[in-house]
Every structure is written in structure tokens, then in C-alpha cells.
């Protein structure tokens, strides 16, 4: 074997000895972005598919929750910026080659869609601002009266969600300099990971509601939204939960397959990419990748969910929480390991 030693006098913070430009902020942003993308897509899908008014209300507060989570995510992104007060510069231009520019504009477009969808499902009660609520209610009714508009909102939610989910992966995927990210699979992978975590989140909320852990008359806007989220009028909450479990299992399976494709793709690629892959498979990130992402993040919840669906065990929040944790760790590890991977 050839002996190679490389030494450098460069000692730039964040860059040496290995790239560490992104800490917790970007994984959190990507995670929440993916989660919101999943919520958007799911609620948009149900809004589009449902025929009756009662069915339309199956996932009433998902958009409101999405607004909150997306805002948190963008907050994390903002915290990551080193020149944060120049952030408006993003919206003075559109850079077609920059995924980040695309992402900024997608986020701008997603917000109105989210708000519109939120308006369709106003809360029943709020602690203050009842007058405003009445106005909103009227607007909501006005919108419901126009099926084309509702359809358009639903469609924009669905499309926006998919775009947002894909973007979170493509953002990393276009960084040619980081061999680990250099894969077209990252877009779909992050999309499906987002979908599965969104389904898991809904499942959690259904269960919380089913078990009556929260006083349903509690009128706080956010909590109300959270716990009303999956209230399907005229439908047994557990059935709704089951639907989510089913969806989650499907998304998880696709996610697992995409991870396999991602791994195979890198393994079949150039030497630098194979080396980058080793970071996940055998290197420093291997225990987290195998145990916490593939193991407790995908396989264990899949098994538990299939047992739940088969009626062998009770529905619990456990698989859903594992899925959500796994989805976060997936982004965490990919962001961290990707930065470490390099061409040299």
C-alpha cells in the first residue's frame, strides 16, 4: 500500500481539520422542513381526496401546526447564518443554479398555501381575539363555498409539500465537493423521511387525543390545534390512527428502500464516494447509522407497526416516536458525515 501523508498550514475555523460549517441548526431545519413538507403533502392529499365536508376536516390543524414548525425551522436556519441581517438579500434575486435560492422561494410560496389551508380549518375557540376568529370563520366559510378554490389550495399544499421535501435533500445533493451527499437519491429520501415522520407525528397526536390526556375544552390556540389535529368528526380516532400507521409503514418501507439505493449508488461509484460511504457503514457514524437510524428508526418501528396493524399489540406512541427520532438522526448524521467527507 502506498504511504501518504498530507499536512497543511491552513487552520481556518469551521474548515479545518475537517469541514464543520453546519452544527445543529441545519439538521434541525432540514428535519422540521421535511416534517412540514410531509404535513403539507398529507393534508393536501386528504383535502383533495375527501368527498364529504366531514371527511375534508379529517386533518384540520395540520396546516396550522405546519406554520408553527416551519417557522421554528426557519428560525434555526436564521440562527445558522453568520451574516443574518443580510438575509433579505435572498429575495432580491433568483439564482437558478442555487438550491438554496430555490428553497428560499419555495418557502415563501409554501407559507401562503399553508395559511390558506389553515384558514380552511379555523379553531373552534381561542382564548382571546374572538372577534378576529369570527372574521376568520367567515372567510373560511367563503372559501368552502368555492370548491375550485379549495381544490386549488389542496393542490398547492400537495405540490408545495413535495417540492419542499425534495428540496431539503437536493440542497445537500448538489454539493459536489462532499462525496457523501453526491447522490440524486437524497431528494426522494428526505421527502419520504419527511412523510413518514409527519405520519408518525399525526399518529402521536391521535393517540394523545384518544387517551384524553388533554382537556379538549382547553382553548389555547396552539394546543387546541395540536390535539384537534386528527379529530375526524364522525370517525373513530383509533381508525384514523390506524390509517396513519398504515401510511407510516408504507413511507418507512420506501424510505428503507431509498436508503438501500443511496448506499448501493455510492458503493457503485467512485473511490472517494466509497470512502465517504464508509463513514456511515463502518466509520465513526456507523453505530448511529446502523443502530439508531436503520435499527430503531426504521426496522423496529416497522415491526411494531405491523404487529399493531395485525392486532397483536396495542397501539402505542413508541413506534411513532422512534420514527421521528430516526428521521432527525438521519439528517443529523448525513449533514455531519457529509461535511467530513471530502475529495482529498
Amino acid at each position: 500500500m502506498q504511504h501518504v501523508e498530507i499536512s497543511t498550514t491552513r487552520a481556518n475555523p469551521l474548515v479545518d481539520p475537517v469541514l464543520q460549517v453546519w452544527g445543529w441548526e441545519i439538521p434541525v431545519y432540514l428535519f422540521l422542513g421535511g416534517l412540514v413538507a410531509g404535513l403539507l403533502a398529507l393534508s393536501g392529499f386528504y383535502l383533495l381526496r375527501s368527498r364529504t365536508a366531514s371527511e375534508r376536516g379529517a386533518w384540520p390543524q395540520a396546516p396550522m401546526l405546519g406554520v408553527v414548525l416551519l417557522t421554528l425551522g426557519m428560525g434555526a436556519l436564521f440562527l445558522d447564518l453568520d451574516h443574518p441581517w443580510y438575509v433579505w438579500r435572498v429575495y432580491l434575486t433568483f439564482e437558478p443554479a442555487s438550491p438554496m435560492s430555490w428553497g428560499s422561494w419555495i418557502l415563501i410560496l409554501v407559507y401562503p398555501a399553508l395559511f390558506a389551508a389553515a384558514l380552511l380549518h379555523p379553531p373552534e375557540r381561542v382564548p382571546f381575539g374572538a372577534g378576529l376568529l369570527a372574521v376568520i370563520r367567515r372567510g373560511s366559510e367563503w372559501m368552502w363555498a368555492r370548491p375550485r378554490l379549495v381544490q386549488a389550495i389542496a393542490l398547492s399544499n400537495l405540490v408545495g409539500g413535495i417540492a419542499l421535501g425534495l428540496y431539503t435533500g437536493i440542497l445537500l445533493g448538489t454539493m459536489v465537493a462532499r462525496p457523501l451527499w453526491n447522490s440524486a437519491i437524497l431528494g426522494p429520501l428526505f421527502l419520504f423521511s419527511g412523510l413518514s415522520s409527519a405520519a408518525a407525528l399525526m399518529h402521536v397526536l391521535t393517540l394523545v387525543r384518544t387517551h384524553g390526556l388533554v382537556d379538549s375544552t382547553y382553548a389555547d390556540l396552539l394546543l387546541h390545534g395540536l390535539f384537534q389535529l386528527l379529530k375526524p368528526p364522525g370517525r373513530d380516532p383509533s381508525t384514523a390512527g390506524e390509517a396513519m400507521v398504515r401510511a407510516d409503514a408504507a413511507f418507512l418501507s420506501v424510505e428503507g428502500a431509498l436508503i438501500a439505493l443511496f448506499v448501493i449508488g455510492l458503493a457503485a461509484s467512485t473511490e472517494v464516494q466509497q470512502q465517504a460511504l464508509q463513514l456511515l457503514l463502518t466509520g465513526a457514524y456507523a453505530p448511529v447509522f446502523w443502530c439508531l437510524i436503520l435499527g430503531t428508526g426504521i426496522l423496529v418501528p416497522l415491526v411494531l407497526q405491523s404487529l399493531e396493524l395485525a392486532g397483536r399489540i396495542r397501539h402505542t406512541v413508541v413506534p411513532a416516536l422512534l420514527v421521528i427520532a430516526g428521521a432527525f438522526l438521519l439528517r443529523w448524521v448525513l449533514v455531519q458525515a457529509g461535511q467530513v467527507s471530502s475529495w482529498t
Binding site: 475555523p13 469551521l14 460549517v21 453546519w22 447564518l81 451574516h83 443574518p84 443580510y86 454539493m175 465537493a177
Partner: peptide, 26 residues
């Protein structure tokens, strides 16, 4: 510098590690 928001995408995109964040943020 006056257009840079300090997102560090360029640091991650450069295969040579040629960039850094100036203490002033860009």
C-alpha cells in the same frame, strides 16, 4: 461581502476548502 448572508453553502461546496467565514460574518 454586502450581499453575503453567511449561509456557508459555498464553504461546503468548495472541494478545496478555500473559503472561510470572516469574523465579520461573510
Amino acid at each position: 461581502a454586502s450581499k453575503c448572508i453567511g449561509c456557508k453553502a459555498c464553504l461546503a461546496a468548495c472541494p478545496y476548502g478555500a473559503r472561510f467565514i470572516h469574523p465579520d460574518g461573510y
